[in-house]
Design a protein around this nucleic acid. Structure first.
Lengths: 137, 137
DNA sequence: ATAGACCTTAATGTGTACTTGAAGGCAAGG
DNA sequence: CCTTGCCTTCAAGTACACATTAAGGTCTAT
């Protein structure tokens, strides 16, 4: 498939696919006789992996570090796992921060004070809800 | 309190606090006789609100839109709620994306294939887990 | 009164992650 | 033959969210 189809299939622009290839986030793509990229499903999956990690906030730089370990010959299983675990921790913290911001907004929507600062009252209530949630785990 | 204390209290750099003020993400800050910013707890709370929303991925531009409605005289309750709700939806989607990436990484860590592409098998498994989770809600 | 630590504004620089533009090649259709 | 529409590379531009630097003012202590 050509780069345009791949772009449509992944939702990633053609330029971004070229960029990912240049930055080694995806493997080198095979070419047709005239030099056009010929993209297969393996590449599509790699693009989707990049997209998902990017959406989760993993930087291009970290992704490259991780992917280079995969593409290396040696057995880097430990390092790979370490990077994944590190990234996992980052993502879980992000998710929790996000959840607390969601709780905050929900609280605002439900109470809707006429001034927007988080009041002490409000902070205590959020704290209370947080403690309650933890107790339920 | 001066800007440095405020910076330490919020974890936001002095430069960023000035920037937030300039961009109207926080109210105009009172000045001392010599023109230095004199920051009170109301401003601190506003800075923290900005920080939380920024961490949750709300752009400066959207934050400004929202905050300007608050600072306006008219009763913009509906619009304010609409913006919050819109932002809430964005954040919930983000959280879900993040969760699915977390699931994906956890799956990888538990199975650890020797090639990193998401296999069809793996995708089916993730789909299955997703369905199961939904059923449990 | 001189140092050192704080402050001010305004302009410019930085890093990230792309996007856009320029200049051109190849193949099909009218 | 020319246009359309895809592709290529390489370089330069863009948007965001600050960070840094320059050039100066003020306050406090020794």
């Amino acid at each position: 498939m050509n780069i345009k189809e791949a772009s449509e299939k992944t939702g990633v622009s053609s330029a971004a696919i070229r960029y990912y290839e240049k930055e080694s986030l995806i493997p080198e793509i095979d070419r047709t006789e005239v030099g056009n990229r010929d993209i297969d499903d393996r590449i599509i999956r790699r693009i989707k992996f990049v997209t998902q990690m990017r959406a989760a906030g993993m930087s291009i730089e970290n992704l490259r570090r991780y992917i280079q370990l995969f593409d290396a010959q040696e057995d880097n299983t430990k390092e790979q796992k370490a990077i994944l675990q590190e990234q996992l921790a980052v993502m879980e913290e992000k998710r929790d921060d996000l959840q607390s911001a969601i709780d905050h907004l929900n609280y605002k929507l439900n109470h809707f004070y006429d001034h927007m600062e988080t009041t002490e009252e409000e902070l205590r209530e959020l704290e209370r809800q947080h403690a309650e949630k933890k107790a339920n785990q």
